[in-house]
Design a binder for these strands. Structure first.
Length: 587
RNA sequence: UGGGGUGUAGCCAAGCUGGUAAGGCAACGGGUUUUGGUCCCGUCAUUCGUGGGUUCAAGUCCUACCACCCCAGCCA
């Protein structure tokens, strides 16, 4: 530990640098409070994971708190199914909001109190203009808007109308409450933004208690304020809304300061030590990943139109999709650490995410043998009634993981791709006359093969060398190739689901031309193989277990369909890096 | 002349007080290896969107320009 004044720590993102400064100046004392504020109108995706890691990560780093707050101000879009999935996903990622679980809907009464306060202070008015008229009056990006004819109603009149709005005296869309700011503001967000709208709709938590609901710009900053948030971190598209965020809070603090809210200020004051201790908003670039879409609208469309098998389809970039695919929370958090936090729009290479899972799974996944595209291999000189049982390590770099027993007999299954009739020099696997190693078993030399009428190879034959038991030889003989295998007599049958990228384009969200993202869907993104043979040890594997099929890839026993001892179902998480594929491609 | 942002390698991204371009991914070589995996070692920006300027010295300061993103929901 040194006492030297530290320059901002190298590599710290700009948000943490801001927090460092605020801590230095004591802007909030030593308090650091963030929040993750999803709207419960869809499942969380990897883009949310970036925000979750940022907000909860900051709370951890600075010994602060991070609230989970549901931004549920629009009853027609929201549902409790989504709040349940969001909680599950945040927990799964490894974060805990403890008792700090909030809903914007819990503040409806307080929002309403602030609205009345603004009306009394002449900062808000009820407008009778229709939605269309409001749009016309707003002007355009380059031309100023004009005032609504209802803009100068008295506070008394506004208060009466607003109460009638709350009482349900008007139909949807007949009135709105607007902030009185500036219809000529160059930032259109400030041209008298809507604060409340009428929606006679049941809310997933408040039922029919309300028929007016606050808008995001009004509710979000107030929620932050009520909860004593210090740093309100959101994505870049909200940069335009920041002046409004500031306007609402400044207006409220001004009202409190002027005594406008009377003796009892508890309904409108914030969670800071003083009313002035208010949150500020900071924006970072949202995550984009190559080869997928991360927009809620598009994801919900994929689910509802049946292009995928639900929100947790292993091809989906949702948290639940990655979970079912076999990604670990550690790998996703590592990914979020590596991509950084900045303000430049960016598109992260999917290969980085894949690298993160591979790295994590390489360390922790036990190894097994499984043949996905089987062809029979007959060891001609191995007696029919003989068997071996080999004890194989579960992990090549970590003995402590232990071993498992793998039976061997005369008839085996090997991978079709491990045999070539006319093998090039660089092909190290099986071909007539060549000797290869069967992993941890024996050296075998291929003697021939058989084909059916269509020319498909139906059976491969070989002889084994009993002196190479265990898969090695001390006579200086070398084999270049090592192959995995499964004893036909002992193998368990399994269904293996091979997943590939869901889209064919690098940026399916913006494919160019007349194409939409749906036109970019990869028709071969899912291959279900029902005739796979795996070593017997996998028969009692529990759902959700990660493992590696040696030489093939990382897999997980499917959480929903895999039944130990009955139906075996494995999802491919990621392939292993395949340098042979590169060599073969080069020719 | 609407306003607000952003431009550092194929992809992310450090760089803050000007001193001679971190790191990761990808790619490409080589070594180790009973997984063509892992691991190890090496290569990969004479240049920071562009042009001017200030300075002994500019990715960092000034200036002009260019490109891209966001904003006209009673969505968030």
């Amino acid at each position: 530990m040194s006492n030297q004044p530290e320059a901002p720590e190298k590599g710290k993102d700009f948000v943490r640098q801001i927090i460092d400064k605020d801590l230095e100046t004591g802007k909030y004392g030593d308090r650091v409070q963030t929040r993750f504020p999803p709207e419960p109108n869809g499942y969380l995706h990897i883009g949310h994971a970036k925000s979750i890691c940022l907000n909860f990560g900051i709370a951890e780093d600075y010994n602060g708190r991070c609230n989970l707050r549901f931004d549920d101000t629009n009853p027609v879009k929201e549902d409790t199914e989504y709040v349940d999935s969001i909680k599950e996903d945040v927990h799964w990622l490894g974060f805990d909001w403890k008792e700090n679980e909030f809903f914007a809907s819990d503040y409806f009464e307080r929002f309403y109190a602030v609205a009345e306060l603004f009306i009394r202070a002449g900062k808000a008015y009820v407008d009778d203009l229709s939605a269309e008229e409001i749009r016309e009056y707003r002007g355009t990006l380059k031309e100023p808007g004009k005032n609504s004819p209802y803009r100068d109603r008295t506070p008394e009149e506004n208060l009466e109308l607003f109460r009638k709005m709350r009482d349900g005296d008007f139909g949807d869309g007949e009135r709105v409450l607007r902030a009185k700011i500036d219809m000529a503001a160059p930032n259109v967000v400030l041209r008298d933004p809507t604060l409340y709208r009428i929606k006679h709709a049941d809310h997933h938590r408040t039922g029919d208690a309300w028929c007016i609901y606050p808008m995001y710009d009004f509710a979000h900053c107030l929620s932050d304020y009520f909860e004593g948030i210090t740093h309100s971190i959101c994505t870049l598209e909200f940069e335009n809304n920041r002046p409004l965020y500031d306007w609402v809070l400044d207006a409220l603090i001004e009202c409190i300061g002027s005594g406008a809210c009377g003796d009892d200020t508890t309904a409108v004051t914030g969670g800071g030590a003083t009313p002035q201790e208010r949150p500020y908003q900071y924006e970072f670039a949202r995550l984009n990943i190559s080869g997928t879409v991360l927009s809620k609208r598009k994801l919900i469309q994929l689910v509802q139109e049946g292009h995928v098998d639900g929100w947790d389809d292993p091809r989906m970039p949702t948290i639940s999709g990655f979970r079912r695919r076999g990604y670990t929370p550690e790998s996703i958090r590592d990914f979020c650490d590596r991509i950084g936090v900045a303000k430049a729009d960016s598109m992260v290479d999917f290969a980085l995410l894949e690298h993160c899972v591979r790295q994590d799974l390489n360390e922790r996944a036990p190894r097994y043998l499984g043949v996905l595209h089987p062809v029979k291999l007959i060891i001609e000189n191995y007696p029919e009634d003989q068997e071996d049982v080999f004890e194989m390590p579960l992990h090549p770099e970590d003995e402590s993981v232990g071993t498992r027993k793998v039976p061997f007999c005369r008839e085996l299954y090997i991978e079709r791709a491990d045999f070539m009739e006319d093998a090039p020099k660089k092909f190290f696997r099986m071909s007539v006359g060549r000797e290869v190693r069967l992993r941890f078993a024996y050296y075998v030399t291929c003697t021939g093969f058989e084909k059916d009428a269509e020319g498909n190879i139906t059976e491969i034959r070989a002889t084994y060398d009993p002196a190479t038991k265990g898969g090695w030889s001390d006579d200086g003989r070398k084999v270049k190739g090592t192959m995995h295998w499964v004893s036909a007599r002992h193998a368990a049958k399994a269904e293996v689901r091979l997943y590939d990228r869901l889209f064919t384009e690098e940026n399916p969200g913006n494919p160019g031309g007349d194409k939409t993202f749906l036109d970019c869907i990869n028709p071969d993104s899912k291959e279900v193989r029902t005739e796979c043979w795996v070593e017997p040890a996998l028969a009692d594997m529990q759902p959700g277990t990660h493992f590696q099929f040696e030489r093939t890839g990382y897999f997980i026993a499917d959480a929903k369909d895999h039944k130990p001892g009955d139906k075996l179902v494995f999802n491919r998480t990621a392939t292993l890096r395949d340098s042979w594929a590169k060599i073969a491609k080069k020719g």
